[in-house]
Amino acid sequence: MSSVSYLPEQRRSEILAILSRGEPVSAAELAVRFSVSEDAIRRDLRKLAAEGLCEKVYGGALPVSPSAQPYSSRAGEDRSRKEALATVALTLLMPRQCVFLDVGSTNALLAEMLPSNLDLTVVTNSVPVMAALMDRPGISLFALGGSVGGQAGGMTGAQAVSDMERYRFDLAFLGTCSLCPETGVTAFDGDDAEVKRAAARNSEKIAVMVTTDKLGARLPHKVLPMEQIDYLVSEGEAAQQPLHLYQTQNNQILTTANVDTNSVKEK
């Protein structure tokens, strides 16, 4: 318990510093730390959440992930960074693969960049991926059913999960809201997380593409642990989150800095 008396603004600044490191906060623990009531901490967290600085959850708060925004708001953000990730991801593709492309703005850019000479079969629950590939020669496109969510930008729910069981993927690119060494991939929405888990169950290999601002964040719904990820495509080292923390015995880490993108096949 701290003997220092904090003003509400000072408390919120300290709480925000913890969240900025990608760490969740507990109202009970913060109350002890600042020697105030849990009600006072909950008021602090509500104010931070109202300002868009955290994600309020039962018992505390989580760092804000870019994926908390509706798809339409984040589709055009950081396009050059996401294109660099997608360019690296293209090196993972082989002829005649069956590939799952999950919802997410980086996966949508990957769809735009897919070559037409690999005879790929693409299965997706993403509306933007469908739009990018529906008239593309050399690619067989299949779509999952389900309810369309504006935040996810595609189909989620029981129908999408049921449809997933009809396929077997060589490689699945999971849309990634957050990635943490301890919890792996996590998501904001439970239905979205369930679709991702179904894709992982039905795929030989799993790949995720993440910008550095998603590293270290933890969200409420578990998708899969780091040990089940085969390929992590990232921009490189991030403050407080060096990439060696994400290395497992089975995965391969590819970055935009150390992969020869000149070998990528053009459309």
Rank of each mutant, 00 (worst) to 15 (best):
M1Y: 02
M1W: 00
V4K: 11
S5A: 12
P8K: 11
R11Q: 11
R11T: 05
S13V: 08
A17L: 09
R21C: 14
E23P: 04
E23I: 08
A27K: 01
A28D: 05
E29I: 12
L30K: 02
V32H: 04
S35E: 07
V36C: 11
S37Q: 04
E38T: 04
A40W: 00
R42A: 04
R43D: 06
K47W: 08
L48R: 05
A49S: 13
E51C: 08
E55H: 10
E55G: 10
Y58N: 09
G59H: 02
L62T: 05
P63A: 08
S65V: 11
S65A: 14
P66K: 07
P66V: 12
A68Q: 08
S73I: 11
E77L: 15
R79K: 15
R79W: 08
A86G: 06
T87R: 12
T87D: 10
V88Y: 01
A89Y: 00
L92C: 03
L92I: 05
P95G: 09
Q97W: 01
C98W: 02
C98D: 02
V99P: 01
F100K: 00
D102G: 05
T106N: 00
A111W: 00
P115T: 09
N117G: 12
D119I: 02
D119P: 05
L120K: 01
N125P: 15
A131H: 13
D135E: 10
G138V: 10
I139R: 00
I139N: 01
L141E: 00
A143Q: 11
G145W: 00
G146D: 07
S147L: 15
V148P: 01
G150A: 14
G150D: 15
G153I: 09
M155R: 02
G157I: 14
E165G: 05
R166E: 09
F169V: 13
A172S: 13
L174F: 02
T176K: 01
C177I: 06
C177A: 15
S178P: 15
S178D: 10
L179A: 01
L179W: 01
C180N: 15
P181C: 14
E182I: 13
T186E: 03
T186Q: 02
G190K: 11
D192P: 11
S203N: 01
E204S: 07
E204V: 07
E204H: 09
V208P: 01
M209H: 00
T211I: 05
K214V: 12
P220E: 04
H221G: 02
H221M: 12
Q228A: 08
Q228P: 03
I229W: 00
L232N: 01
G236H: 10
E237W: 02
A239C: 07
A239W: 05
Q240P: 03
Q241V: 08
P242T: 10
P242E: 06
H244E: 05
L245M: 09
Y246A: 04
Q249G: 10
Q252P: 03
L254G: 05
T256R: 12
D260S: 08
T261D: 03
N262K: 06
V264N: 00
K265F: 11
K267Y: 14
